[in-house]
Design a protein around this nucleic acid. Structure first.
Length: 789
RNA sequence: GCCCGGGUGACGAAAUGGCAACCGUAGAGGACUCAAAAUCCUCCGCUCGCAAGGGCUUGUGGGUUCGACUCCCACCCCGGGCACCA
């Protein structure tokens, strides 16, 4: 199976669609001609989603109509680009046949306690009037509309992605994905190992007994340098709700900090703010009293929402301590390598290093590196790495701490307060709470609505669907209401590839027999924008279904390649506002579909690049295809030219090797080189040679090749013969001391003596050998000769 | 700040330890044409030279090697991801 990311039916194909679908079609056609195994090249539409609603409002139609029209239009466009998709496997996420299984998966995850409802602080987009997942927020703004998001405390449906945090990180190891994607996912999961440390608290208004504050740290070795603690405003609010009698200015600070949007909190960035809370804590090992501060540089959503601050060994704590005159205690002695080792011959740089070390020891500079412990009682002299273990162990023995792992990954908030999505199959009963819809009652169909606009009250438009809304509770039979939120469209797209294996099955999302046949996906091609969204979600859903016993594999995509990104001619990302968008229809009208596809493939490597569109460059490919036609229209000859024959075998070999590696650019270069050679020889091609040449051109230019030779795509891929590639003599470079001085021509398997003799005959080389015999001879038969004198 | 990727002609690029710049674009000159387009031929990394030929060149500096765009170390720059994540 060759999988490419299915499109959102936005209406028009842009050049990016061409790049994804037409260029990967080269591989599909090659594999089919090769015929080693059956190949599936499926397509579908990611047809639910918010843009359809906005467009429908604008065009005075319904999201369903708008989407269906676009699906038809895009289907025609995809067919026009000669992409050889398996249309009978077409999948559309907005069809009930499909989304009943999206709902079924939701219910399975609910059974597994991987789908749950909870109240948390979520991202709210004020423009789109819906919550967003963490992955859909970039730099504090909505991924889709770029409005700054707000933080709201709301009850939402969530998927427990964190249940697989370790698996999602660890299983990356065995995947054939590029390092860029793996690294992006690792960063996103953000696993760090450290220690949880307990601090007995004294908080005015709250009883001391059992009042313990926990902090997470990766630097337990610096525990003796913890001169204060900091809690997040979020934790401060929680304390207030449990009776903390805090001074008014502290309450005010907490209020203000919590009122800020994430974006503004980030902008405040550099300059630290905070207040002394008036509370204090007891150091778990020294028994000393340390003050507790409240500051918004500590996040409520990570770790325990509180930290131990070690200003001597953490930049942020140092800035804070410096601003508020909190003592700084150095507990890591910077190692000797930081200090001059030459005694009285100190250079300026070394003197500076010496001073730097003195500053660190005096608590006048931050040092985040390695070293041995000082000012740490029994742990003095230990190396920092060992001290992490020793101190964690000591804490554990005292019952004051333990090892702990933390993640940046948050659970996936999947409910959306929008209309055009898959309904969440749950029922809210006043007495039974949330009850799942029976699987026999799936699908819960999305009702047609007159007014599907998002509401301002944070409720989904489905709350207005009167009859649809009212149901009986499946448990007690009393009147109840359906869940009115719909699912994030990323839920729809996180399992669509499974459906391709068995797209029409009405009894299962896919039969295990077919899943076994096609899954996991051996090659998945798509865009880099999905590194931490779709790819992470699809992995989660696969792992969840695997854990539930519904799949035999736990990773969906064995190999993943991100296709390159085509930039506008000005080198910027294409956008309507920049006016640098390339219109594929216009290019097709001028040059034809084959030229557009082949030029895209020729521009550069297919993976992990950004390349500007060169409006002139396309003529090169256009000329090539015209010459192919001219060649084919010439009368075939009866006699094979041996040089041409060799070139055809060489090209077949090169193209066969390059296509599976997605190196279309070098494959096309080889085809051009071959045609140049054929024309130079002017000896013509035999009928058979012509067919073989056209066959290796066919995946790149399906329209032309079919026109020149009907049924060419059903032909089998030409073989090549290594024996024909061999030549009786080769020209190899001769180097003297590694510098190119001439060339010699000899048999590919000629011996060293013969090669040296030939080199001496060559006048260009001879004069460098005036001194006599070379001191050393490096000879790689058929490759090069290097004489060292 | 941390992590990942990258830096080669005017441009897209090729070469992953063995002739740097294949293939294509742009450019220059020429043929055909009343002219343009299309097509064809020649030149085309920089530099010295009439030429033969020489010198230099893969971000910078060092190293390993007979030989480095390719491997190692340090630094600079560009793109991307994460980001007061403790």
């Amino acid at each position: 199976m060759l999988l490419v990311e299915f499109p959102y039916p936005s209406g028009d194909l842009h050049i990016g669609h061409w790049y994804t679908f037409a260029v990967s079609d080269i591989l599909a056609r090659y594999l089919r001609m090769k015929g080693e195994y059956e190949i599936m090249y499926p397509i579908g539409f990611d047809a639910f989603g918010l843009p359809a609603e906005n467009a429908a409002i604008k065009h005075g139609t319904t999201p369903a109509n708008w989407t269906e029209t676009n699906v038809e239009r895009m289907t025609q466009q995809l067919k026009n680009m000669h992409a050889s998709f398996d249309w009978d496997r077409l999948v559309n996420t907005s069809h009930p046949d499909y989304y009943r299984w999206t709902q079924w998966i939701f219910l399975k995850l609910f059974e597994q306690k991987l789908a749950y409802r909870a109240s948390t602080i979520v991202n709210w987009c004020p423009k789109d009037k819906t919550v967003l997942a963490n992955e859909q927020v970039t730099d504090g703004c909505c991924e889709r509309c770029d409005s700054p998001v707000e933080q709201r405390e709301l009850e939402q449906w969530m998927f427990k992605t964190t249940a697989f945090a370790d698996a999602l990180a660890d299983d990356l190891e065995d995947l054939d994905w590029t390092e860029t994607i793996k690294s992006a996912q690792r960063n996103w999961i953000g696993r760090s190992t450290g220690a949880l440390i307990k601090w007995p608290l004294r908080v005015p208004g709250i009883k001391d007994e059992e009042n313990i504050l926990e902090t997470f740290t990766t630097r337990a070795d610096t525990l003796f340098g913890a001169t204060f603690l900091v809690i997040s405003p979020e934790l401060g609010k929680k304390w207030l709700s449990t009776g903390w009698d805090a001074p008014n200015h502290v309450r005010a600070y907490i209020e203000e900090a919590l009122g800020k949007r994430e974006l503004d909190r980030l902008e405040g960035g550099k300059e630290k703010t905070g207040v002394d809370s008036g509370a204090s804590a007891v150091h778990p090992l020294t028994g000393e009293t340390v003050p507790v501060w409240v500051a918004d540089y500590v996040l409520g959503s990570y770790g325990t929402g509180a930290i131990m601050a070690v200003p001597a060994h953490d930049q942020r704590d140092y800035e804070f301590a410096n601003k508020f005159n909190i003592p700084v205690t150095c507990v890591i002695d910077p190692p000797e390598s930081l200090v001059a080792q030459l005694g009285d011959t100190l250079s300026d740089a070394q003197r500076q290093t010496q001073n730097q070390r003195e500053s660190i020891l005096a608590g006048k500079a931050v040092y985040e590196g390695d070293g041995n412990l000082i000012n740490s009682e029994a742990f003095n002299g230990l190396n920092a790495k060992d001290a992490v273990k020793s101190i964690t162990k000591a804490l554990k023995e005292k019952g004051m701490g333990r090892s702990e792992t933390q993640y940046k990954l948050r659970d996936w908030v999947l409910s959306r307060q929008r209309y055009w999505g898959c309904p969440i199959p749950m029922i809210k009963c006043p007495s039974c709470g949330y009850v799942p819809v029976s699987k026999d009652d799936l699908p819960v169909k999305l009702p047609a609505l007159e007014d599907f606009k998002p509401a301002n009250d944070g409720r989904s438009p489905l709350a207005k669907a009167g009859d649809w809304l009212k149901v009986k509770c499946p448990t007690c039979g009393e009147p109840a209401e359906r869940e009115t939120d719909t699912m994030d469209t990323f839920v729809d797209s996180s399992w669509y590839f499974l459906r391709y294996a068995d797209p029409k099955n009405a009894k299962k999302f896919a039969d295990p027999k077919h899943l076994k046949e096609w899954m996991p996906v051996p090659l998945y091609i798509g865009g880099p924008e999905h590194n931490t969204m779709h790819l992470l979600y699809a992995r989660f859903i696969t792992k969840a279904l695997h854990a539930g016993g519904h799949l035999s594999f736990n990773e969906p995509f064995t190999t993943r390649r991100n296709h390159s990104v085509i930039l506008g001619a000005d080198g910027n990302r294409m956008s309507k506002s920049r006016g640098n968008v390339v219109d594929p229809d216009h290019e097709v009208k001028t040059y034809g579909a084959d030229t557009v596809r082949m030029y895209l493939a020729f521009m550069g490597p297919y993976s992990d690049q950004t390349m500007p569109w060169d409006p002139n460059g396309i003529t090169g490919v256009h000329r090539f295809l015209k010459r192919v036609r001219a060649l084919y229209e010439k009368e075939p000859v009866s006699e094979e030219d041996p040089d041409v024959e060799r070139a055809l075998h060489a090209a077949t070999k090169k193209v066969s090797a390059d296509i599976p590696e997605l190196k279309y650019n070098t494959a096309i270069s080889e085809l051009m080189k071959t045609l140049n050679l054929i024309e130079e020889h002017n000896s013509g091609l035999t009928k058979k040679q012509r067919g073989r040449f056209l066959a290796i051109v066919a995946p790149f230019a399906p329209e032309l090749s079919e026109e020149l030779q009907k049924g060419i795509h059903d032909e089998s891929w030409p073989e090549y013969d290594e024996n024909i590639l061999k030549t009786s003599t080769v020209e190899i470079p001769v180097q003297v001391n590694g510098i190119l001085r001439g060339h010699i021509t000899l048999a590919p398997d000629a011996g060293e003596a013969e090669a040296v003799f030939a080199a001496k005959q060559d006048a260009g080389v001879e004069r460098y050998l005036a001194e006599g015999e070379p001191r050393k001879v490096i000879y790689k038969p058929g490759k090069l000769l290097n004489l060292v004198v």
